[in-house]
Simulated assay, not measured.
Amino acid sequence: METKIFAKDQLDDAVDLLAKGELVAFPTETVYGLGAIATNEKSVKGVYAAKGRPSDNPLIVTVSDEEMMRRYAKEVPERAEKLIKYFWPGPLTILLFVKPGSLPDAVTGGLDTVAFRCPDDELTHNLISKLGYPIVGPSANTSTKPSPTTAQHVYHDLKGKIAGIIDGGPTRVGLESTIIDLSVKTPIVLRPGEITPEELSEVLGEKVLINTGKVSDKEIPKAPGMKYRHYAPSAPVVVVDDVNDFSKVDFNENIGVMALKDQLAKIDLPDENKFNLGNDLVDADHNLFGGLRYFDDKDNIKQIYVQGFYDGEESLAYMNRLNKAAAGHHFNK
């Protein structure tokens, strides 16, 4: 299969492919998503196949607006309306009860809930509006690999497996959306993102919990990112919690380092063994996946040391992704 890359003025071509049941990757403000019409079970199953994604991992339903979401949500409670008014379009995914029979089990995992997202990206908004249907939107990468933040990342992973990629340039945020579960009595963040639990709590006027539990092998996760290995390059990743510990690492030509600019300047390694995460945590959020992919393409790199951050809720999303990439391995020497 030929994978076409579409420019911004070729959106109608991408719409035509989706309408025919093909798979097309699309940009959002967080990461690139892999699109298929959410009501087309065959196309949705194609998403799992292209990614090599476990079939019990539910998919996010990406909509153009609240009106489209209401076609598939069993009910939209007041607290969902509050969050939609304040954060949509934006990097927030809302888990609600699904209208029975409105979406295939391939989307919901057979659960009675589904996650809805309305991205803050004009291209994708127009894509879905022209299509007239919601699309599923898991990250457009090979399952377990770092999420894609450019069209080139998508092409690297899915060339020949999908029909097209809409090139919207580099993403703004760089980490996937916050997922909040509103199907339970007390709202709970299932996956942290740019929007923090504190910000959600302020808008809702009630406490918001943070999921810390693990999903067992036999359970179906309510949302993406809760059960399976994610974001990992080929080389093992190690989290460095204290930047002073970088001085204890036995550096050599087979080691890669990802850290803030000022920290990298203190490390005696060739430039090609370093990846600059930027000047602060916001930059690091944006650059994390790019750095993991940078080293994934280097055959000589056998281990990657990455700077950790512990800045309260602001660093939850970064550390969530990094810990998954590292499979929980932290430096202690």
Rank of each mutant, 00 (worst) to 15 (best):
V24G: 04
D105I: 03
S143N: 12
R53C: 04
V15E: 01
V47P: 09
T150D: 06
A25F: 04
T144F: 01
E67N: 12
M226K: 12
A7K: 14
V208C: 02
G205Y: 07
P77C: 11
K82W: 05
D280N: 15
E67D: 08
D299C: 04
L292Q: 01
R229M: 10
D120G: 01
D280E: 10
K214E: 14
S216F: 03
S177G: 10
G21S: 12
T142A: 11
R293P: 08
A284P: 09
C118H: 06
K42T: 15
A25K: 06
T62K: 07
K145R: 15
L11E: 02
Y72L: 02
K324N: 05
I304F: 00
D167R: 02
G110V: 03
S247N: 14
E313V: 14
E314D: 15
T28A: 08
E272P: 01
D105G: 15
I166K: 05
G312H: 05
E314L: 10
V237W: 06
D105C: 03
L281M: 06
T124L: 04
T149N: 14
V98A: 12
V203I: 09
P170V: 02
D268C: 00
P27L: 07
Q152W: 11
A163P: 02
L17G: 08
G35T: 04
K214V: 13
K207E: 15
T171F: 06
E29P: 14
L158M: 08
A265H: 00
K214Q: 13
G90C: 13
I162L: 07
